[in-house]
Nucleic acid binder design. Structure first.
Lengths: 213, 213
DNA sequence: CGACTGAGTAATGTATACAGTGGACGTTGT
DNA sequence: ACAACGTCCACTGTATACATTACTCAGTCG
């Protein structure tokens, strides 16, 4: 085992992401650096560095002289992110070696089926969904692309609390996963990509329906 | 006229980008914060903040305890970036309102034709190319997407000195632009997207041929 | 009564100071 | 001769101090 150290700014960044996902840091709220630094038990320097890093990922915004604020969530941003992720995941799938896809296809199918069975526990669903997508794209060696996808998903995660309202929604997602997996298994990559895009855009629409009821 | 102020970190970021594009900051080179800060006439604090911002854009890398270094250029990174940009620009084109595309089509065509005529001045070509692509995507209102494209192009710009070696290359690019413009003019968006992707991938291939001769 | 002004305050933006780490180099022991 | 160890120096990572800016809220003038 290797004891791995991390810089404070990395730890702070992780902690802030954690808290944002947990919902304890309300979107749109202004950030008081002194207070937040004190609360985290660090000085302002690494905190500011973490904030700047998060700003580039779109989770935080800043304005000259007025400091930082947590990015507000909006239907607009959500509608912007989804098509981009659909395109990028589609590309990642396209760039994956077909032989690798053939290899993981059975597992994809199996997990897609398990998905609809194990929707009992609330909060597990999104993790499940993430892992399934990760597996789907595990063959893509384009690091830059995978980094981008990771970053954008981070921004999307803030919408999850809104997202996971409806069980019907989950079942539909599961069936879509199954469709994608089946096409991958059949070697129909183009079809799988299209199904993947549909999955994203359907998911977006479902969420938007919950957003402003 | 509005006098606009900028934070030091923003100015430093801009200056570093400028210098990287000018080639005065060799890729792969380690960064000495004290020296660079002194050279820029600022303290380490805003410099580090700028470096962290650039790190998230892929222009700079960092390692725990060893500080920052300018990202080395590599055929691998170049090959990773191009398909991503092809996909994202394709998406941006897809998301553009057809009526706007119809409106700018004549200008696109005209500039594509002028392009092949005005290849005389060295160094103007890439600017020309950039502006043409900007015009092509000017109808896309997905800010997030446009930001992404801008950021990725920043990373690509470092490869330009390698890129612009061959005049034949430019002529081919011009003819491809013309093809894209013609399809836009004809209302064939899907065809234009495909031509755009081809343009990117051809450009990549041409550059790679120059990269390791 | 309303709008402008100005001091005061709290926060951000920047500089400097301190602490801890990595690497170079010399030393020592075999 | 060479490997292992220890010391030292330069540099990064973090904390603190300073400067500057933006907001607040009386107070004053029209």
């Amino acid at each position: 085992m290797v004891i791995q150290r991390q810089t404070l700014r990395a730890q702070i960044r992780a902690e802030l992401i954690e808290r944002m996902n947990a919902g304890s840091l309300p979107p749109g709220e202004a950030i008081n650096e002194v207070h937040l630094a004190a609360e985290l038990g660090v000085s302002r320097t690494p905190l500011r560095e973490a904030l700047i890093a998060l700003e580039n990922e779109g989770l935080i915004q800043s304005e000259q002289g007025k400091g930082f604020r947590f990015s507000p969530v909006s239907a607009k941003e959500f509608e912007e992110l989804c098509p981009v992720l659909a395109a990028l995941e589609g590309l990642a799938l396209e760039l994956s070696p077909p032989e690798h896809l053939a290899e993981i296809a059975p597992q994809l199918l199996q997990e897609a089926r398990e998905f609809s069975a194990n929707v009992a526990e609330y909060g597990v669903i999104t993790k499940y969904d993430d892992e399934w997508h990760d597996l789907l794209l595990s063959g893509c060696t384009n690091e830059r692309l995978m980094d981008l996808i990771t970053t954008l998903k981070l921004a999307l995660r803030r919408y999850e609390s809104v997202m996971v309202k409806d069980e019907q929604m989950i079942e539909r997602a599961a069936s879509e996963h199954q469709l994608i997996a089946e096409r991958v298994a059949a070697g129909d990559i183009a079809g799988a990509i299209e199904a993947l895009r549909t999955n994203w855009l359907n998911g977006m629409q479902r969420t938007l329906n919950n957003f402003a009821p």
